[in-house]
Nucleic acid binder design. Structure first.
Length: 477
RNA sequence: GACCCCUUCGUCUAGUGGACUAGGACUCCAGAUUUUCAUUCUGGCAACAGGGGUUCGAUUCCCCUAGGGGUCGCCA
């Protein structure tokens, strides 16, 4: 394709970045990078009533931590700005006037109450509701009189009477929608703000957007957008309607039924590359039998052809597995950094960095989220209280015999290698005649305060010879 | 309700007329490794929504039915 790829992610700042938004942003980003195009962030803040304070900042920072960076947008002004729709009102007004002048749009003075009545009536009669265009019949003089009187108004797009809109969607193929199903959409609200339909079309054109990636929920309003492009004499972009992300019950992913904020998953401690990887695979998959993809690989492999048509249920189980995989395979130093705040919060001194890395390297084997790390790490720094049952176990005669013997056996004049340590352990089992659980359980209780955990050489190497032996000694009554 | 879209294991998916006894991944189960836990490895359970066509041959193409979802706002 010879045209430059320019795509945009256009959230409305009504809350936090959610999983669905993240995926749309990711696909946009991957597609842009892959084609040496530009990825634009545009804030669709045309609904004054739903604005949430801090939402824009949150959106931007969420994208940033997920590694999705935009080329143009808030704080990155380029020639197509501003990137906040609320700062583009004059532009929209100009194009709306043009539509009115051309007869493609008209003033409507119907109140919300009137409209509600009409809607209820239609519903009772089980009829498809469509605005009856009563205001379209107003004469120029009547309109002017109402305008002069300061009556509240909106502007509606006048859709054609007869027409089947057929358009090509890059994931769905050819889609046809009868104009009979489409209302005369309000394009300018009574508060002077445009609606999405008008603003998005104008901006996408002015910002030279080549491909519009958006959720499937927009499919049925696409004819309105296509019609707007025609009214202005513009060429529409390529349409890419993405399948929805679904709740377990297959309804559109919602806050009510799931945690949907990207931030929440980060707070819960999922590995962020795993989250990206997981989200990427919800509705897209290359032909190969592969599951693990880095951002670079996603950029390289992504293709619209391979986006699915059907919605995808968001299932945490696989994300958990994937997150664990990433913790185990990513750089130890990164995982260590990620876990560090927890140790600080718990007041654990991790200034011995070599030890800290050994601890994390072992603990990462057990976790799927970073906040589980403490559960598998704290014991190398401090022992908690034993349960009554464990204490009893530790203090019984056999256990004490094991501890007394092993504290001496392990207390060599040099640091033991894993093989040497195993040899001592095995040899001792024969010497004292206590084996299996009765042997290992008390040892582990003394060493890490729990009956289950890593093997002896691992504990020894993390704790170091001195602490290892000391812990055994301390457990002796 | 009208319209639009969708439909392969429980979930994410591979599959574009024969290579399919339908492949992979997660989950689950069993086994191996391990003193235990976790990791790792091996194996197993499990799906083409149904019915008609087209074709020598349909998971793949067409039609119908069913089911699911989306839209129907001065929200995006």
């Amino acid at each position: 394709m010879s045209t430059d790829v320019r795509v945009r992610f256009a959230p409305s700042p009504t809350g936090y970045l959610h999983l669905g938004g993240l995926r749309v942003a990711l696909y946009n980003y991957a597609f842009a990078k892959q084609n040496n195009g530009k990825f634009i962030l545009r804030i669709e803040d045309t609904d004054q009533a739903r604005l949430v304070e801090g939402a824009v900042e949150n959106l931007i920072s969420s994208l940033e931590v997920m590694g999705i960076t935009y080329d143009e947008g808030p704080n990155k002004d380029a020639e197509y700005g501003p990137y906040f729709q609320s700062q583009r009102l004059d532009i929209y007004r100009k194009y709306i006037n043009e539509l009115i002048a051309k007869g493609h749009a008209y003033y409507c003075f119907c109140t919300k109450e009137t409209l509600d009545e009409m809607r209820t009536k239609a519903q009772k009669e089980k009829k498809f509701f469509k605005y009856d265009r009563r205001c379209h019949k107003l004469s120029q003089e009547e309109i002017q009189a109402k305008l002069d009187a300061g009556e509240s108004y909106v502007v509606r797009l006048k859709m054609p009477d007869e027409r089947i809109f057929t358009f090509n969607d890059l994931v769905r193929g050819e889609v046809s929608i009868d104009v009979k199903q489409i209302d005369d959409q309000v394009i300018l609200k009574s508060d002077g703000f445009p609606t999405y339909h008008l603003a998005a079309v104008v901006d996408d054109h002015l910002m030279k957007i080549s491909h519009v990636f958006r959720g499937e929920e927009w499919l049925s309003s696409t004819p309105k957008h296509i019609f707007l492009y025609e009214c202005f004499g513009w060429t529409p972009p390529q349409w890419v309607h993405l399948p929805l992300i679904l709740n377990k019950d297959k309804s559109k992913l919602s806050k009510r039924k799931n945690d949907v904020a990207v931030e929440t998953y980060l707070e819960k401690g999922y590995q962020k590359d795993a989250l990206i990887n997981f989200i990427a695979l919800l509705g897209w998959h290359p032909s190969e039998d592969r599951e693990l993809f880095s951002m670079d690989e996603i950029i390289k492999e992504f293709s619209i052809d391979r986006v699915n048509k059907a919605g995808a249920v968001f299932d945490l189980t696989k994300l958990e597995w994937m997150s664990g995989m990433y913790f185990r395979s990513s750089d130890l130093a990164d995982v260590a950094d990620y876990a560090r705040p927890q140790f600080e919060k718990a007041g654990i001194d991790i200034s011995d960095n070599d030890k800290y890395l050994r601890v994390i390297d072992k603990a990462r084997e057990y976790i799927s989220t970073i906040d589980q790390v403490m559960e598998h790490a704290e014991m190398y720094y401090r022992l908690g209280e034993l349960s009554e049952k464990d204490a009893e176990m530790l203090n019984n005669e056999e256990s004490q015999k094991v501890l007394a013997y092993m504290a001496e056996a392990y207390n060599t004049d040099h640091i033991l290698s894993p093989d040497e340590l195993n040899a001592i352990t095995k040899g001792s089992i024969g010497e004292i005649g206590i084996k299996g659980k009765k042997f290992y359980f008390p040892l582990r209780l003394a060493l890490i305060g729990k009956g289950h955990g890593p093997d002896m050489p691992a504990i020894y190497s993390i704790l170091g010879k001195e602490e290892f032996v000391n812990r055994l000694k301390r457990a002796i009554k």
